[in-house]
Nucleic acid binder design. Structure first.
Lengths: 197, 197
DNA sequence: AAGTATTGCGCAATTC
DNA sequence: CGAATTGCGCAATACT
């Protein structure tokens, strides 16, 4: 019956959850300055490595500052400008970190690799990532949908099972009753049969 | 037992789905040029309507502009959306252009209220929206989580129920068998009780 | 080391 | 008008 249908859905659902997607987000990291693209555009450069504090920010931008402002909703720790690896207390691989002593000067930019936003390579990367993002989100949407459907089906199935259990239980009680009656009757009087289940 | 726990979870889950969130997405609208903030920043202005060819601002009337805003003009063009995961798609930026209904032409500077991105009001709006967005997403995340938990619990419960049905069925078969035996045998031997089931 | 997959974020358009 | 949603691109990460 519907079993086959359910099964298939479940299967799809299961396939949506391979082991573990990745690892739990748990990443409250402050990658806040993301949207700063608007201002960033002025710099037209982003450093892929640790573009540290001073470097990027601190540049003439009001918008950023404003964004840093109060967040009524779950305040964020806007304070540090991203790039700070240990921010969220994440284990991440802070890999290369000790290089610069506690005081790194904004200069000595260990600049990993600055890429011009005009660079063809940059655009290529961006476009690829955008594609990946869309793909990933579609996937997520489908997964969520499947989970919802799965939940609904399980709920239905559950009700049916409960119902069945109710029937079986009742039937069982009846039989037990009948049996006990007969047992008592052994050879004595003859009580009615109660054929009705 | 666990019932109470399940119930509570279910309740939470249910509360996460008030009737309908809003309405189905279905909105493939081309809001693509969103990220252009980098470029936009140069203009420092955004037109809420469709800026377009030459004519853009020139009108300052907010009210009128806002009314126009809600019009579903260029809503449909990138119909590529629906269910189509086509990751590799390059669909998406083709923008809105030339397809308007017979009436209403681009000519009337349908210009919307242009708001300076420097404007305090703008920043205020943005910040509020950002807060709302975060809130909304948190909510969504929680909802998804609840759905997953719900599905898992239902699954467990299901297994238990199946198991129980198996037991009951077996017990029932046994009793039926016993009963049939007695029926046939009348009142002779005493078949073992098989109390153990 | 390089490429893809995820995730949080802000923007802007829409919906309520 | 204002809050809630949603699709999108960006950048930082996580994973391969």
């Amino acid at each position: 019956m519907s079993d086959s249908r359910v099964s298939s859905v479940i299967q799809e659902w299961v396939s949506s959850y391979p082991g573990q997607p990745h690892s739990q987000p748990l990443n409250p990291v402050a990658s806040n300055q993301a949207a700063q693209s608007s201002q960033m555009s002025q710099m037209d450069m982003i450093s892929y490595g640790q573009s540290h504090t001073g470097i990027i920010r601190g540049v003439t931008d009001e918008r950023v500052a404003e964004q840093m402002m109060g967040l009524p909703y779950l305040s964020y720790n806007t304070s540090c400008l991203s790039s700070n690896p240990n921010s969220g207390s994440l284990n991440h691989h802070q890999s290369h970190a000790g290089d610069f002593s506690p005081f790194l000067l904004p200069r000595a930019p260990v600049t990993k690799r600055s890429i011009s936003k005009d660079s063809a390579e940059y655009r290529l990367r961006r476009e690829r990532n955008n594609v990946a993002v869309r793909k990933s989100r579609d996937k997520a949407r489908r997964r969520i949908l499947l989970t919802q459907q799965r939940a609904l089906q399980l709920q239905e199935e559950n009700q049916k099972l409960q119902m069945k259990i109710g029937q079986l239980t009742q039937e069982l009680d009846t039989l037990k009753h009948i049996l006990s009656q007969r047992h008592l009757q052994g050879g004595e009087d003859g009580t009615p049969q109660e054929s009705a289940i």
